[in-house]
Design a binder for these strands. Structure first.
Length: 333
DNA sequence: AGGATTTGACCCTT
DNA sequence: AAGGGTCAAATCCT
C-alpha cells in the first residue's frame, strides 16, 4: 500500500477523531460552572484546527508524498572532525575524492533541510537579550556580520550534534527596524533526545493553530512539508511504515506549531539548557521549504535511523522519561 | 579541567 | 567575486 496515502488517511482519521474529542470536551465545558471563556475558546480553536488540518490533508492528497530514494552509501557518515581516512579535517587541500563526495552529500542534505522562521519580540523583562531558550539546548558556533544588516547574525547548532547526531541549527538575527525583535531561523529538525520532550509539549498544548495559520493557510499553498509536520506532531501510528525508507523522524521545537514560550512549563523545558533564560512572547512562524526538497529531507532524516536516539514521534510508541509529569492535568488537555 | 563562546579563516553557493 | 555558513583554534567561563 502506498505509504504516503496510508499516512494521510490515518492522519485524516486522527484529525477528525481529535475534532470529535475536542467537541465533546467543549460540550462538557458548556455544562461546567468552572469552565472559563478562555478554556472554551481554546477548545474551539482546537476543533477548528482539526477541521483545517483535515481539509488540508484532503486538498494535499492530490500530490502524494514521494517515497525517498535510497541513501547514498556515504550519507550515513554526516560529519566528523576527521576525514574518512582518519586524517585531520583541517587538511582540506589533501581531501580525497571520497571526502569531497561526502561534503557534497552533506551540502545537499543541509540545503534540503526544512527551514522556518520565527519572529520573537523580547521585552524589558528579558533585558532585551537574545531569546535563546526555545526548549532546546543550543551551542553557538559562529557569528557573522551580514551585509546591509545592522546587527550580526548568530549561528547555533544543537548541543547534541555529535552525541546524538542531531543536525538542527538555528540562526538568530536582530531586526534592523525593531531591535526588540529577533528573527530566528530554524534549519533541520531535532532528532536528539530533547526532541521527545519538546514534541510532547507541542502536542500537550493547544496552541497549534498559530503556526498553521501563519505558515500555511496564509499562503494558501499546500505543501507536503505540512503533511510531514503533521506526521511529526500528531498521534499517528506509523507502525506499518517502513522506517528504513519512509519514516519521517521529524520533531519540531515547541514553538514550531505556534506554541508560545509562555505556554509550556519551564520545569520541563530542556533537559539541559545552558542558555537558561525564559522568554514568553508571541511568535510568527513562516515555513519556507520547497517541495522538491522533500526527497532529500527524507534521506537526511533517514540517515539518523542508525542512531540509538529516534526523533520520530508517534506518541503511541515513544519512550518516555520515567520522571515525565504525566500527572499534570493540563498535559493532554 | 572541561565545556561554551569568540573570531578569523576557509568553503560553498550564487 | 561576493556573501553567507561553518570550522576550529584561541579564549573565556564555571
Amino acid at each position: 500500500m502506498d505509504c504516503a496515502f496510508n499516512w494521510e488517511y490515518k492522519t485524516l482519521i486522527n484529525e477528525l477523531t481529535q475534532g470529535i474529542e475536542h467537541t465533546k470536551q467543549l460540550r462538557e465545558h458548556f455544562h461546567s460552572v468552572a469552565s472559563t471563556y478562555e478554556n472554551q475558546e481554546l477548545l474551539l480553536q482546537k476543533i477548528l484546527s482539526c477541521y483545517e488540518q483535515s481539509l488540508m490533508i484532503l486538498k494535499c492528497s492530490g500530490s502524494p508524498v514521494q517515497s525517498p530514494p535510497a541513501l547514498p552509501p556515504s550519507s550515513g557518515v554526516i560529519e566528523s572532525s576527521v576525514s574518512v581516512d582518519g586524517s585531520p579535517r583541517s587538511d582540506h587541500k589533501k581531501r580525497s575524492f571520497q571526502d569531497h563526495q561526502e561534503l557534497i552529500d552533506i551540502s545537499k542534505k543541509r540545503k534540503s533541510q526544512p527551514t522556518w522562521t520565527e519572529q520573537v519580540k523580547v521585552s524589558a523583562e528579558t533585558g532585551f537579550d537574545v531569546p535563546t531558550d526555545d526548549g532546546y539546548s543550543w551551542r553557538k558556533y559562529g557569528q557573522k556580520d551580514i551585509l546591509g544588516a545592522k546587527y550580526p547574525r548568530s549561528y547555533y547548532r544543537c548541543t547534541y550534534r555529535h552525541m546524538q547526531n542531531c543536525w538542527a541549527t538555528k540562526q538568530v538575527q536582530r531586526s534592523d527596524d525593531d531591535p526588540t525583535v529577533f528573527e530566528i531561523t530554524y534549519r533541520g529538525t531535532h532528532n536528539c533526545h530533547q526532541a521527545t520532550y519538546s514534541a510532547l509539549q507541542s502536542t500537550s498544548l493547544a496552541e497549534t493553530i498559530e503556526y498553521n495559520k501563519q505558515a500555511n493557510y496564509q499562503t494558501g499553498q499546500c505543501s507536503n512539508q505540512v503533511l510531514m509536520n503533521l506526521k511529526a506532531n500528531l498521534r499517528v501510528d506509523t507502525d506499518e511504515v517502513d522506517t528504513n525508507e519512509t519514516a519521517c523522524p521529524f520533531s519540531f521545537p515547541p514553538t514550531f506549531f505556534g506554541l508560545t514560550g509562555g505556554g509550556y512549563s519551564p520545569s520541563f523545558v530542556s533537559p539541559t539548557t545552558p542558555e537558561s533564560k525564559y522568554y514568553g512572547f508571541g511568535m510568527v512562524h513562516n515555513l519556507h521549504h520547497s517541495e522538491s526538497d522533500l526527497t532529500d529531507i527524507f534521506s537526511a532524516n533517514t540517515s539518523t535511523t542508525s542512531s540509538p536516539i529516534v526523533g520520530e514521534f508517534p506518541l503511541d510508541h515513544f519512550e518516555l522519561d520515567p520522571n515525565f509529569p504525566f500527572n499534570d492535568p493540563n498535559l493532554f488537555s
